[in-house]
Amino acid sequence: MSKITNVSIDSIGSSMKKIGLKQEVSSIMILLVMFTITAILQDNFFEPNSVVRNINAFAPLILLAMGQAVVIISGGLDLSAGAALSLLTCVLTYVMKQDDPITGVYAIVIAFAVAVLIGVINGIGIGYLRIPPVILTFATSYIWLGAALFIRPTPGGETVKWFKVFYDTKSAEGVPAFVKAIGSVFQPALVLVLVGCLIWYVISKTKIGRYIYAVGSSNDSAYATGINTAKVQMMACIINSVFIFLAALFFVGQNQSGDARMGDPMTLKAIAAVVVGGIALTGGRGSVYLAIVGALILSFVNKIIFFADIPNAYQTLVSGLIIIVAIAGSVAYSYINKKAVGKESK
């Protein structure tokens, strides 16, 4: 008897250690810390209204970070994500006419096609033409920006009335009752994030999902094994575009207008979220879901700054410091862990 219990305790111990070892844990721990601090600082943190507000504030960054994560895991980097987001909002509002509900459907179809096209162009450049991703997407970001400015030189435009469904179902007009019912339970922003997760969940179970990791980890070995690496890189770019498309739906629902420059600051934020979440910039390592964790950490940092009564002038500075401290903590954590494991194996 005692033998059996010993064994089971040992196995529990080792599995605990395995959990502790995982990269995920350190970033999730940071998230919990940030979450707690925010909850303490913000008095009405758990009230429905502020929960809804927080979800709306966090969702776009989460979506962009997930898309960016797919590209980074495949060994690339997308500097054009923000510009692509702007372009999609401009396309959506360009096609829609306020009085004609059906134009909303056209807009969604056309914008989706544009999103796929953006992914294909980036993918051809990175995968088939072998242009370094940083350079290529830096260049294409200007193309997307130029196209957005062409169709919408100044912020504005109009949307169909039901388009608010992507932001706030209650105030949307002309939508079926059951959609409203769902919307009153789940925030649209939350639904968009869940759709994103579902998309990635399905893809991660397919060949492409595994090949994205293979190509990001070692392009040459993957090629030698007979994987079409260029195609895999293009698929990663297209998946990223789909996530950008989801974010664009949210923004247009929220603002009821398009803006050729609204996405610019989002690009680097999304990349930062991926890194903070613990996904290696070198590719091949980390889970896409970690991007959600990273995006939440960044968002909570913003909240903390806001509620901690830090003077305006220092807010940006402090947010940078908090991120550095958090990452340093997680690096130290994994270092200690590795040492412990090393000793054990000796």
Partner: peptide, 16 residues
């Protein structure tokens, strides 16, 4: 070697 370092042993064996 033509292995992918970040994939597991079995994933590498059936890769492709």
């Amino acid at each position: 070697l033509s292995l992918i370092p970040d994939l597991t042993v079995w994933q590498n064996i059936v890769l492709g």
